[in-house]
Amino acid sequence: MNESGEYRFLPAHMAERLRGIEIGVRRPMDGSNQGLHRSPAFGSSVEFAEYREYMPGDPISQIDWPVYARSDRYVIRRFHEDVSIRCYVLLDISGSMGYKGSGAMSKIEYASYLAAAMLYVMIQQSDTSSLITFDSQIRSYHEPTGTFTRLKPMLLDLENLTLGKAGDIEAVLHNAAELIKGRALIIIISDFLQEPEKIIRGINHLYHDGKDVSLFHLMDPTEMNMSISGLTEVVSMEQEGKLIVDFGLIKESYLKQLRIYLDQLRTGCQKIRADYIFADTGMDVYDAILQRRKIG
């Protein structure tokens, strides 16, 4: 938070632009409160769901009397129930997220903007949201909240993130599936630097647990374009190790491997109905959120 009281990753102009944006889910969600999202249970919304034979004990007020008049049958008219949902934003704070190439900001900064925006949007639409940070394991966990007051600690946490070491997304996703009970929206913001098969396995676990999963895949433009030339000693930000690379020579092969990796990850997500949004750090955060909104 700066001197004017603005949160670093959720400035006022950003909050203003986010007002009115709604994030939906593909799957019915559990929820105890009235909300915007369809629940698998019947409720009191205005959206007709079905007719059911009257059963003793049902409130008489629920009998559809016009139907009785026409068919001499007691039926009860049922409506869908709209509930609020829980949204968990899983933010990758592994070492690689600290990279800043030719993008406007580092990946972790971009991810923080994105996480703050998502948390804000979800609370704004009467859902609850939670922030979970992880690298090779879950590092911090905030209980889901539906108030802006309770959002504040999460926003402040975003401003004080400490990057971890090597990440293990698959392990974290398995842990998250155990940690998060019931149906919920899981938004994973990460650079997903792990083998796509492993990542997909983790996402699959969440999906089968009834979670609606969305991935924000962040990359720096430099990572994508390899706009580096010359002989360079490349040091990994996560693992031990370094390589001497002539980017001029290796570029073609690198980009080819990158394309394969991205294709595998995107295809894997499509198979398990996870939303995959690719965003490079040169892209406007709002634009990235719009990508997700369209899907919802």
């Binding site: 990279y99 630097l193 990572e223 010359g230 002989l231 000693e233 490349v234 990994s236 370094k242 491997q257």
Partner: peptide, 24 residues
Amino acid sequence: QKKRRLLFPTLMFFHRTDPRLNSR
């Protein structure tokens, strides 16, 4: 040519490339 030192998110893609490139 002085070797630049560059922190990079991962060496995963470099390891996937042809290991002979450096020798070449």
